[in-house]
Deep mutational scan, measured.
Amino acid sequence: MGFKLLSKLLVYLTASIMAIASPLAFSVDSSGEYPTVSEIPVGEVRLYQIADGVWSHIATQSFDGAVYPSNGLIVRDGDELLLIDTAWGAKNTAALLAEIEKQIGLPVTRAVSTHFHDDRVGGVDVLRAAGVATYASPSTRRLAEVEGNEIPTHSLEGLSSSGDAVRFGPVELFYPGAAHSTDNLIVYVPSASVLYGGCAIYELSRTSAGNVADADLAEWPTSIERIQQHYPEAQFVIPGHGLPGGLDLLKHTTNVVKAHTNRSVVE
């Protein structure tokens, strides 16, 4: 069995187990497998329904001669939608809004960016022009300005110390501490036991640490421990890039980060 097929099978099995364990909360999309990078042309966006009122959005972007996937989250909030992270750029984010209108038909009224990198804030200006209120932590807003990236308009308070959590509509926002970046936030959907790890969490097929220019490698494993301790009931975990899975993604990420750190020390 090929690795790609095995990865998709694991996603399907995880979703099936969740649907059985929580039949009222989960209505997993039966329309197909989780979209992969090879299936999404740059400039297009796919939506994948995880649970009743919960979707991931998947886009792709060219970077350094390669094409990478990027995940975000959409959560229903009454007759409105909360968006977590842009679709990595203005063109993708405009396509995301169009796809949401086509498939869901509810307005996106608020959006949260989970850290300051372009795959999370690139497209904020498109959201703002569409009347979406954009939010991020003060740290993310400051770092985005320093980096020359787009800056969300509103500040999220109460997320300055490791372990801080605040309720934001249908989700809980959690600051686990520094990891992929010093400002990275985690998003949890309690009604569906869905954990969105953003770039602080890796997919299972990833074996290298990737972009760690703004990471705190020493603190990252401790931050992941905080996530595990705060959300032990999480059933569906979405990484910032690639295929979702279960809580095993947290341990896998820790292993990859520690291996990278150990290699760096040896070198």
Score class of each variant (00 low, 15 high):
M1T: 07
L5T: 14
L6E: 05
K8A: 09
L9F: 13
L10H: 11
V11Y: 06
T14C: 07
S16T: 12
I17K: 03
A19G: 11
S22G: 09
P23K: 12
P23N: 12
P23D: 11
S27N: 02
S38Y: 15
E39C: 11
I40H: 03
P41Q: 04
E44V: 06
E44I: 04
Q49L: 08
W55D: 01
S56E: 11
H57V: 10
I58C: 06
Q61M: 05
V67T: 07
P69F: 15
L73N: 01
L73F: 13
I74S: 11
G78L: 09
L82N: 10
D85P: 00
W88G: 14
N92H: 05
N92Q: 13
A95R: 08
L96R: 01
I100V: 11
E101I: 07
Q103P: 11
L106N: 06
T109E: 06
R110D: 03
R120D: 06
V121F: 01
V121Y: 05
G122W: 05
L127H: 00
R128C: 03
R128W: 07
A130L: 15
A136Y: 01
A136L: 06
S139L: 10
R142P: 04
L143P: 02
A144H: 04
E145R: 09
V146H: 08
G148V: 05
G148R: 10
N149P: 14
H154S: 11
S155Y: 12
S155D: 11
L156N: 02
L156S: 03
E157M: 11
G158D: 12
S161H: 03
G163W: 07
A165K: 09
A165P: 03
R167Y: 04
F168G: 00
E172W: 12
A178C: 08
L185M: 11
V189N: 05
A192I: 03
S193R: 12
Y196P: 00
E203P: 05
R206K: 09
G210K: 11
L217N: 12
E219S: 07
T222D: 10
I224C: 07
I227V: 06
Q228L: 15
V237Q: 02
I238Q: 08
L243Y: 15
P244H: 14
G246W: 07
L249T: 09
T254K: 05
V257A: 10
K258E: 13
H260S: 06
S264M: 02
V265W: 08
